[in-house]
Amino acid sequence: MIAASIILLGAFLFPIWHIDLRAPQYPEGLGLRIWVNQITGLKDGDLDLINNLNHYIGMKTIHPESIPELKIMPYIVIFFAIAGLLAAKFNKKWIKAVWLVTLLIILAIGLYDYYLWGYDYGHNLNPKAPIKVPGMSYQPPLIGSKQLLNMNALSVPGVGTIIILFTILLASGSIYIDTKKERPKNA
């Protein structure tokens, strides 16, 4: 449980989601990296570049500083790390379970929220955009790839998400061990 809480902080060190864009004109690659607290480009300048390209289809520009989630998420992660450590200290199975379930709910909300942002960016387009394709929207897939005009968008979880998965696994393991320990007592 202690390990689960500590590695959760590792989610700060790696992006939690990758969106890679592939197009013939970009042999060198182009992409976004979504972190717990920021959005960056795969390379320096990629964010500005993607914003610039997106103006052709009328997509809103992505300003990481105006996305409130990026400000809240770090506190949530830190909160869960501390709460997890406390849960480990109390070493009560139910506390751990509550912690885990809350984490899962928050993650689900987070994922849904991320989907909503993607939906908004992909659908809420400037009607005066130079390129308008009837019926076309530009929402990047949550996971997987999708052809958006000349760009193939590939969206996959990053190392940050894998770390969170490990946190969940470790916490579940801890609860499982607790359950096992309880059983002989009951038996």
């Binding site: 060198e28 320096d44 300048g45 570049l49 610039n52």
Partner: peptide, 9 residues
Amino acid sequence: HVTNLEQDW
């Protein structure tokens, strides 16, 4: 005075 704001290769 023209600045090319692009940062794209």
